[in-house]
Amino acid sequence: MTIRVVVADDQELVRGGFAMILGAHPDIEVVAEARDGMEAVEAVREYAPDVVLLDIRMPRMDGIEAARIVCAETDCKAVMLTTFDQDDYVYEALHAGASGFLLKDVRRDDLVHAVRVVVAGDSLLAPSVARRLVADFVARGTGVGAGRRSTGGTAAPGDGGLGSLTARERETLVLLGRGLSNAEIAAKLVVSEHTVKTHVSNVLAKLGLRDRIQAVICAYETGLIAPGV
């Protein structure tokens, strides 16, 4: 299967560099490049890619608004490109439906791996990003509830939601909170990756969480993991 990608960044060198790195791999095809959020949305609508890489700060329409539109209209995975320290709005991307974050100084191999990982539905939260992102997110007092879909009768974290999880599902949630991939969680729990995927799906469904990123935040908000640990 060829992974179809759109790269959106207003800096030509960054955009072109990412496209060149990804396009050098036979299982990845960069179907379009975009200079701003509006072009990115148009490209996703036209080419139906599997992943769109979105710079958070772009003219005309920023990456967050583009992600919100893309995630609402399509099954394309949105990955945000950020310098992190300078992006005060990175937290809004969580509620826009972003599947993960990449630092702009990401290594070549990590960029390619990230695209493959997010298409597979796995976590795209490197510990270096996850710890700071989630700790700051929680410190701001911004809960996941505002960005979650209502699941009807599912208790939110903090008011009994964790009580619906089995012991193994709680362990899975803790490991998700530490930024581990399915393969890493499987190794920790000594189970198959298929079993881990089942546990992750159950955690998301029982807690009414949209994706793995919100599961990470939930792990911090409920005290299963302390920020910075």
Rank of each mutant, 00 (worst) to 15 (best):
I21V: 15
A72G: 12
R131N: 03
V70R: 12
T172Q: 10
A66N: 08
L81R: 11
R212C: 04
V115M: 08
S150P: 02
F18G: 02
A8K: 12
L162M: 14
F137W: 12
Y220V: 01
E184D: 12
V174K: 12
L204D: 05
S150K: 06
D36I: 06
C218Y: 04
G177C: 07
E65I: 01
T82H: 11
H113Y: 03
A130I: 01
T166I: 02
A215Y: 05
V112F: 06
Y47P: 00
R149D: 07
A78R: 09
A215F: 07
D27W: 03
M61K: 15
V106D: 01
P49V: 01
L133I: 02
L111V: 02
I217R: 14
G121M: 09
L180W: 04
T195I: 01
A19W: 09
R168Q: 14
R170N: 02
S123D: 04
A43Y: 03
L22R: 10
D75T: 05
G23T: 10
A114E: 04
V31N: 09
F84H: 14
E171N: 12
E92P: 02
F137V: 00
A187T: 00
D50W: 05
A78H: 07
P59M: 12
A66P: 06
G163R: 14
L111P: 01
L175G: 03
P227C: 04
E12V: 09
Q86N: 10
L22S: 10
S99M: 14
L175E: 13
G163F: 02
C76G: 07
P26G: 06
I3P: 13
A205M: 07
A93L: 13
V216I: 03
V134P: 01
T2A: 14
L94R: 06
A32Y: 07
V79L: 15
K188G: 00
S128H: 07
P127Q: 04
R210P: 03
S99R: 15
V5H: 08
T2K: 15
A93C: 09
L81T: 04
D110F: 00
P127N: 05
L207Q: 09
G23A: 10
E73C: 10
L162P: 00
L53F: 12
T198Y: 08
R45G: 06
K206R: 15
E33D: 06
V5S: 08
L81W: 11
G23D: 15
Q214W: 04
V134G: 02
D109W: 01
R60L: 10
V44G: 08
Y89S: 12
L165Q: 05
S164W: 08
P49W: 06
V7I: 11
